[in-house]
Design a protein around this nucleic acid. Structure first.
Length: 429
RNA sequence: GUGCCAGUAGCUCAAUUGGCAGAGCAUCGCACUGUGGAUGCGAGGGUUGUGGGUUCGAGACCCAUCUGGCACCCCA
């Protein structure tokens, strides 16, 4: 064991049972994305660092990206997020694409972070974006997508919630407090940390940012005001739209939601596990109306979000939302091998059943039946077929159910009418 | 990147003030050479994460390092 070369820190090995969960998650994401008319796309995993330098936020680019020189010395980045790639792909073909554009993707990303529960260095992310419309109803559509996804995987509104805010609303109120616009991103960061710090400590931090006492009080009042959304026509229309889609239970206004990425311009949102033990946010997103222009395209409004696979998987397992039958049996039947003389009969039968679309495993080694049945049992195969000299002599096969222990003799001529329907029928593990 | 905690058989864990590295489950064999799960008996399996140090003697103590977890930072 000591000689096994260890995996790269923060990466995960997907053994078949883990892969089954990832695939199940992917299929839910795909189904929901398609239900709203979104199309799947993918970008390169390698990108130039400049793509992110423009807009993603300093920390993400400077501290958290994997960057390395290629053989010619150019700096290559393992993509830490998808939105800038999306913006580029759209900008490149802007004249040919039909808007509004609805695209989704599920692929790997890398961030150089300290691995913890819910945080790895290599992770998968669902990205979904609606480009070319800047109405509140477009924002509401993305929130509806989230709600539909939560419903599809069995997370109800007592378990998860989506918290929504509007950066423009916050900016208006900050202007009223006479906080200058050039401090904006520092103040957003200050707001972002409010809930995580002791008040005294936070207050000192606020003073260090150059705020006076009345401005600090003003911000505190702002962050406690759950009615604030009523002065935002954007948020009012978003909540109205959600009523029509039976999604309101999941969505709440929260003035503390600001988001770290610099490119968000108006609506921002974040989904959280409200009952469980995972304290990290499940997904985050918002409106980014300036990003397309920033990467060289014509200005285009856009809204979207990203959900990482790590946190959602933890939550789904915690609430037992992953169906147990997604990882059931690798084959429907194991055809045993009795002896080297009978082996060709087993192989021929296996081939015949596979051509009928049945998942069949053989045992290509002559060992005790005992061992073969035990093997089938251990890997949860529901049926075995025994094909020894007795069966060959009587032109039949023996079919044994490992669930019930019953076994029946089927004539070779009856395979079509008796065996195939039995093996083709769906059976719960 | 900062602080704290942990790492012993494939898995879960034990080992008194530093004194012979163990158990359950799993695996393999036999009872049972044409029938899995249950039961009984038996066997194999370890450089105690890695590398140094202290000591007559280290799983335990010290230093370094790796990996994981918790709190920061940040974020999916």
């Amino acid at each position: 064991m000591k000689q096994v070369i260890s995996a790269i820190k923060g990466t995960r090995d997907f053994y078949p049972e883990n892969m089954a969960i990832r695939t199940w998650l992917y299929e839910n994401i795909k189904t929901i994305s398609q239900r709203f008319g979104y199309q799947e796309y993918e970008g390169p995993f390698l990108e130039p660092i400049e793509l992110y330098a423009a807009k993603s936020g300093e920390e993400l680019v400077k501290e958290q990206s994997f960057v390395f020189p290629d053989r010619s010395g150019d700096l290559i980045t393992l993509r830490p997020e998808l939105t800038p790639t999306l913006a580029r792909m759209v900008a490149q073909k802007q004249k040919q694409l039909v808007f509004p554009l609805r695209w989704w993707s599920f692929g790997p990303f890398w961030r150089y972070e300290k691995p913890q529960k819910g945080r790895s260095r290599e992770f998968f992310q669902w990205n979904i974006d609606l480009i070319g419309i800047n109405t509140p109803e477009a924002d509401a559509e993305l929130l509806s997508v989230i709600v539909a996804f939560f419903k599809s995987v069995g997370l109800d509104s007592t378990k998860v919630k989506i918290f929504v805010n509007d950066r423009k609303l916050m900016e208006d109120h900050l202007n009223q407090l006479e906080i200058s616009p050039d401090k904006r991103s520092n103040i957003f960061r200050l707001i972002d940390r409010k809930e995580k710090m002791e008040f005294r400590e936070w207050e000192n931090y606020a003073k260090a940012e150059g705020l006076n006492a009345s401005q600090i009080t003003g911000i505190v009042n702002l962050l406690q005001n759950t009615e604030l959304w009523k002065s935002s026509s954007n948020l009012i229309r978003i909540f109205q739209a959600l009523e029509n889609e039976e999604a309101s239970d999941y969505v709440e206004f929260d003035p503390n939601i600001i988001r770290g990425l610099d490119y968000y311009t108006s609506t921002v949102f974040e989904a959280k596990d409200i009952g469980g033990t995972v304290r990290r946010s499940i997904l985050g997103g918002g409106r980014y109306d300036d990003l397309l222009a920033a990467v060289g395209g014509d200005p285009l409004p856009a809204v979207g979000f990203a959900m990482g696979d790590v946190v959602i998987s933890l939550i789904l397992e915690e609430y037992h939302c992953v169906p147990p039958n997604i990882f059931s049996h690798p084959a429907k039947v194991l055809i045993t091998t009795f002896s080297s003389e009978t082996l060709p009969h087993s192989l021929r039968l296996a081939h015949r059943l596979r051509e009928k679309g049945i998942n069949v495993m053989t045992y290509p080694e002559v060992v005790h039946l005992n061992k073969q049945l035990k093997y089938a049992d251990r890997i949860n195969i529901p049926y075995t077929i025994i094909l020894g000299p007795d069966e060959i002599a009587s032109e039949s096969i023996t079919v044994k159910s490992l669930r019930s222990g019953e076994q029946i003799q089927i004539g070779v001529l009856e395979i079509e009418e008796k065996l195939i329907p039995l093996l083709a029928s769906p059976q719960e593990p």
